[in-house]
Amino acid sequence: MEIFEAISTKINYWVYIVIMMIGLYAMIAKNNMIKKLIGMSIFQTAIILFYVSIGVKEGATIPILYHDQVHGAHDDHHEADTSHGENGVVESHATDIHINPDEFTNPLVHVLMLTAIVVGVSTLGVGLAITQKLHREYGSIEEHEILELIKSGK
């Protein structure tokens, strides 16, 4: 039962390892260049899955402030200011905006992973351009055929 709980509560991390190893296997063992590049993309998305899984909290929502969470607190501040102004007591309620960080997922990893997605599609584009160049040069996109052609002096 403990093993079942260890797998079910951290299933994202288990699947992340499986997907990353599938991508690594494809990068190493596949002969076709396009298959290698698909494997590379799967590898990259697996790492992004790992990072996004870190930022998830139980029962948390998307990291966007609602209108009343910002402006409602501001209105309270204004009313409190006028009521206390008669007594000559000036109090700052700027810290009264109640935002509980447990209600939101951690947005830091999301920002980092946005960059990682764009870098991933860039590397895929460069790799596919090299694949097209190889096909124009050697007439094949299979690694072993290209190596044979290079070894035999073309």
């Binding site: 992004i48 599609v121 895929l124």
Partner: peptide, 26 residues
């Protein structure tokens, strides 16, 4: 997993542009 910004970037860039690049190369 409440990462909507990552989700729609992946839908546009990851699924859309990557698939188009792959199909063009194929």
């Amino acid at each position: 997993m409440a990462a909507v910004d990552v989700a729609f970037t992946e839908a546009a860039v990851g699924a859309g542009v990557s698939a188009v690049f792959l199909i063009a190369t194929v």
